[in-house]
Design a protein around this nucleic acid. Sequence first.
DNA 1: GCCAACGTTGGC
DNA 2: GCCAACGTTGGC
Length: 157
Amino acid sequence: MNFWLMKSEPEEFSIDDLERVGSEPWNGVRNYQARNYMRDGMKRGDRVLFYHSNCQPPGIVGIARIAGKARPDPTQFDPESDYYDPGSKPEDPRWLLVDVVFDRRLRRLLSLDELKTHAEALGDFPLLRRGNRLSVLPVTAEQWNYLIKMEKQHGPA
DNA sequence: GCCAACGTTGGC
DNA sequence: GCCAACGTTGGC
């Protein structure tokens, strides 16, 4: 089993939305590296840290699971979609999605600010890398366990 | 709203 | 294949 962090802007799709719908096709990923993580790295049952980005405060808010292996993202073939890609052929889809299933909310927000204060313990945590903009990031088992321990402790004042 | 970081595009 | 221009992300 692998661990991941996936970003979402809560104004677009929040952990509340995921809890309500239960499962969401993660469409619209149009970055090759993120696609490759989904295609090559994700399997049914993988665990996901659900991260709220571009909001105040940004941070990890919940946990989700991956429902199954990546499949073609239908929005790439829809001319009406913001994610339409006229260069992608149905017989050779360029873009993939995975289905993300709600697991639970965190007991408390693990804010980006707080995560930064644990940068040393987290080691090379991709979210904290300078200039990182990827919406799908790998997380190690050690980082996962550390973050879950953080969740169970009291946060900063 | 600003802007640093960085991916993509397209002219050459 | 280089690289300048441009677009997007996302924290601040």
